[in-house]
Design a protein around this nucleic acid. Structure first.
Length: 154
DNA sequence: GCCAACGTTGGC
DNA sequence: GCCAACGTTGGC
């Protein structure tokens, strides 16, 4: 099993949105970055666990845990000109963008803030892209050691 | 294949 | 709202 961290803006789609969905699950659509896509397309497996990270908000940080419940399939929002994430270069016969479905598991007991996580940028989280300067990846792998360390801060 | 211009992300 | 960092695009 693998671990991941996935970013979303709480004003657009936050963890409470996910929790209130039917069956508490939702397609993780709108990813338009090749690195992030490759991870969803090639590596994310059913049963993998993900940190839900709130970005672009008052207190950026990890707010909960979710699980991959459906492996990669084409992101159909790329095919629809009415959609915000429309991409005319994505052909339904050869989709450029993929997504997975995720399901809410739980909130963390508190927000584990980016500020706090950065305190470990030179130690336990030295290899974690999240605490690296200029990191913009919206989906990133988390090692088991990092996962357990972060949860120990809870 | 290089790289300037442009667009986006996301912390602050 | 600002802007640094980074990704993408497209001319050459």
């Amino acid at each position: 099993m693998n671990y991941w961290l996935m970013k979303s803006e709480p004003d657009v789609f936050g963890i409470d949105h996910l929790k209130s969905r039917p069956k508490k699950r939702e397609p993780w659509d709108g990813v338009r970055n090749y690195q992030a896509r490759n991870m969803m397309r090639d590596e994310m497996k059913k049963g993998d666990l993900c940190f839900f990270y709130h970005s672009n908000c008052d207190e950026p940080g990890i707010v909960g845990i979710m699980e991959v419940v459906k492996e990669r399939y084409p992101d159909h929002t790329a095919f629809d000109p009415e959609q915000k994430y429309y991409d005319p270069k994505s052909d339904p016969d050869n989709p450029r963008w993929y997504m997975v479905d995720v399901k809410y598991k739980r909130h963390t007991k508190r927000t584990i803030s980016l500020k706090e996580l950065k305190e470990f940028a030179d130690t336990s989280l030295a290899e974690c892209p999240l605490v690296r300067k200029g990191n913009r990846l919206s989906i990133m792998p988390i090692s088991q050691e990092q996962w357990e360390f972060i949860l120990s801060l809870e």
